[in-house]
């Protein structure tokens, strides 16, 4: 029913999304915690900076990524020199682009969850002998689980749909960076690609549905665990 190319696009989509979530969650948790719990000088500025991808055109974000993480960009050159890691035109690069794009949404979800935690619980943990990191991992993190799950789901779905930043940063290479969105775009551009486009669209719809069901189930699980 689907061609090998289409299966490959699905696989790349899932891989990019999964890597994107894995990449953004730890940073998002750290940033959310800073913004939620640590008043510091320049917090508003940092908050605004992390929200930039939300208001910039994705193509602009992709272009900036190219400037910074490209082969001759400051970080890109360093990564390829020390780790042999190339981001431009690779799946890893696509994951980075989608992670950057979805980052503000992930931070927002986790931060809301963290701000809802009663600071009294952390104070109680202190009086029971829990120091900084111990307290974070035993109280703050598990209680932010609903937000982390929600953030992860948001990041995953946003990654599946990301187009502009990906095509600008890592281009549209079959077998490497051609996700479902890019495959659909390619099919539309191809003469007689209508049937393929419909198939890919159908694939996207089923993937989206599955994601929604999964997220609903996860949310229910989190509610059961933490309850009021």
């Amino acid at each position: 029913m689907f061609t090998p190319d289409e299966w490959q696009a699905l696989r790349i989509s899932l891989e990019v999304a999964a890597r994107s979530v894995a990449l953004s969650l730890p940073f998002a948790i750290a940033v959310a915690w800073l913004l939620a719990r640590r008043p510091f000088f320049g917090r508003t500025l940092l908050d605004a900076a992390f929200h930039l991808p939300l208001v910039l055109p994705p193509v602009v974000v992709g272009y900036f990524l190219l400037l910074i993480f490209g082969s001759r960009g400051p970080i890109g050159a360093w990564l390829s020199e020390h780790f042999g890691l190339r981001l431009v035109f690779t799946t890893s690069g696509a994951a980075l682009a989608t992670a950057v794009m979805s980052f503000p949404l992930v931070v927002r979800a986790i931060r809301l969850s963290m701000e809802n935690i009663d600071p009294g619980l952390e104070a109680a943990a202190r009086t029971l002998g829990a120091r900084g990191w111990d307290r974070f991992f035993s109280i703050t993190l598990p209680l932010s689980l609903p937000g982390i799950l929600a953030g992860g789901i948001v990041a995953f779905s946003a990654s599946l749909g990301e187009f502009g930043a990906v095509i600008t940063f890592v281009s549209n290479i079959p077998g490497e960076t051609r996700t479902l969105s890019l495959a659909l775009y390619t099919a539309i551009q191809t003469p007689d690609g209508d049937v393929a486009a419909v198939r890919i669209a159908a694939l996207s719809v089923s993937l989206g549905l599955a994601g929604l069901l999964l997220s609903e189930w996860l949310a229910r699980f989190a509610r059961r665990r933490l309850g009021p």
């Binding site: 619980l121 104070a123 109680a124 009086t127 109280i139």
Partner: peptide
């Protein structure tokens, strides 16, 4: 001495049990 090293037990009005 920080709270986590004081060995001072507290029971608060709102119990503050860990819900997870």
């Amino acid at each position: 001495v920080p709270a986590e090293h004081r060995a001072v037990g507290c029971v608060f009005q709102d119990a503050r049990l860990f819900p997870h």
